[in-house]
Amino acid sequence: MSKIKEIITVSDLVKKYDDFTAVNGINFKVSEGEIFGLLGPNGAGKTTTVEILEGLRKPSSGFAEIDGINIEKNTKAVKKIIGVQLQECSFFDKLTLFEIIEMFSVFYSSRPDIENILEKVGLLEKRKSYYKTLSGGQKQRLSIAVALVNDPKVLFLDEPTTGLDPQARRNMWDLIENIRNSGKTIIITTHYMEEAEKLCDRVAIIDTGQIVTIDTPKALIKKLLDSGFEVEEKLQNATLEDVFINLTGKSLREN
């Protein structure tokens, strides 16, 4: 394996609430330029882990750093080099997309080409529309646009395709791959396994606050098959989603 720079290191991370341990000793490393997936059922601790990395929560114990900066000790410096797309987050409803990105640029003291960012996420024609008029998929893409204002090294995407229709989801996958191709590291959480399989270089499966396994999707599947696992019905070469996309096309329906 070629020597790749590690940009995120998480070791023995624990987050305890009064009567409940959300994250219970998590370790992983992410290499620069990787798309790293955090998978797991609801309440497994994915979002808590991500929010610790984003500097939104303090860990009870353990250690995490991004690009060599300790998150707990130097939260502000980390926030400056990461882009964040939060789960269930909205923006100022009566501001235009341009104004929202302008505002966040000031918060990050950066001066990006706002039109260019909107172009990247496919919202350039919507730059003068109010946030509240956007569709679900457009809101998610704006959220990513906002996360790009500081040209971050690492981008955190927390369930970016939840609630989107198949067209919008595919569009989002293309966007995420494009962003990765521009050299950014991406941490993504998702409930959709085909999404993880399509996008992620490696995934960590988390349950009850602990990492069950980490590997590439292919290796994980191979391991399962090697252990004698068989799919009950004969493996199909296409899914119902493929049928759906084949019949309804890939073009987005929101504009």
């Binding site: 939104l56 926030k79 909205s90 100022f92």
Partner: peptide, 13 residues
Amino acid sequence: TQGVLKRLQATPI
């Protein structure tokens, strides 16, 4: 409730 404040907390300000 809409998470705007949380998003602001994720910024360096």
